[in-house]
């Protein structure tokens, strides 16, 4: 079984759009949306959910024996996250669940409680099984939820003996990204020829180099700025990485709005110039060959 993760550094470069189209090409795969902050793959693949499971991966402090509180303020003084207000109530957004207040409280007023940080969905799409996670609003622990999504996806892949797991990652270089590339076989980095795209690409390549992973760079909207595209190609060559180019196309958004992949839009949608779509589809086909 091979695991492929799609990441980008900069957001909005086209990870999900490309992942959705790749999903159609990769038969016998499990799809996993690990962008748990803002999962979007489900908007295109429109899965039928048959199992939803709340994830309890973190804790939060709660005042359970308020009547015992002697207002000694020790909890507030020792909390390093400013999570305890002047009136000794707990700010749940700021609490990281470390347990210092529980330990320091002389009267056992505060107890750490498990909390639900997100949900994991097990579902089926028209291309195969899909697992995705959603962070509850204002929760932390993104990395841990990503780990759970991957764990679940691996289980599904094993029981249904699938060949691949295709993972839609999140932007940035932080905790959820590291979680979504940890242990995979191939990373597809989607970038765009803009100053920000290049800046973030360098950081994300540096990150993947730490993991010693096989990777491919995809330059989306490459014809928007050919100078910058050249620069990206050079960066990729320096890192022994192949590049694939996808042309800029204003109509791609339309296909997404209809919940269709690029391959599905070809021939079906007559309002879009077919030639344009063929070019994009061809490029995605090339990516598929590279990562396959």
């Amino acid at each position: 079984m091979k695991e492929i993760s799609v990441i980008s550094g900069k957001g909005g470069t086209g990870k999900t759009t490309i992942t959705a189209s790749l999903a159609q090409l990769m038969n016998n795969s499990v799809y996993a949306d690990c962008d748990v902050d803002a999962p979007n793959l489900d908007l295109v693949l429109e899965p039928k959910v048959h199992e939803k499971e709340a994830v309890k991966v973190s804790k939060v402090a709660e005042r359970v024996n308020i009547e015992n509180c002697i207002e000694c303020n020790k909890c507030r003084e020792n909390c390093r996250f400013d999570a305890i207000n002047q009136d000794l109530t707990i700010n749940k957004f700021k609490c990281e669940g470390c347990g210092v207040c529980q330990y320091i409280c002389p009267n056992n007023v505060i107890k750490l409680q498990e909390k639900e940080s997100g949900d994991i969905y097990n579902s089926t799409t028209r291309f195969g099984p899909m697992v995705y996670g959603k962070l509850r609003i204002g929760e932390e622990a993104t990395g841990k939820i990503v780990d759970k999504v991957k764990e679940k996806a691996r289980k599904v892949a094993k029981t249904k003996s699938k060949d691949h797991i295709l993972i839609d990652g999140s932007p940035g270089v932080g905790c959820p990204v590291i979680a979504s590339i940890n242990g995979v076989d191939h990373v597809l980095i989607v970038t765009e020829p803009t100053v920000s795209g290049i800046h973030d690409l360098k950081r994300v390549i540096e990150l993947t180099n730490n993991f010693n992973l096989e990777k491919t760079v995809c330059i989306n909207k490459y014809d928007l700025n050919k100078q910058k595209t050249k620069e990206i190609t050079k960066i990729a060559q320096k890192n022994n990485t192949d590049t694939v180019k996808i042309p800029y196309n204003e109509n791609i958004n339309k296909t997404i709005a209809q919940g269709k992949t690029i391959f599905e839009s070809i021939n079906l949608d007559t309002t879009i110039k077919q030639n344009d779509l063929f070019e994009v589809a061809g490029a995605i086909f090339q990516i598929w060959k590279k990562i396959h």
């Binding site: 909005g12 902050d37 295109v44 957004f93």
Partner: peptide, 24 residues
């Protein structure tokens, strides 16, 4: 996003401009 770094950054702000694009 809407995870921990976002909350840290938004804490104590007076106003938020939410930038969006007209896609699904």
């Amino acid at each position: 996003g809407s995870g921990c770094p976002v909350i840290e950054a938004m804490d104590n702000l007076d106003y938020l401009i939410l930038v969006t694009e007209p896609t699904k």
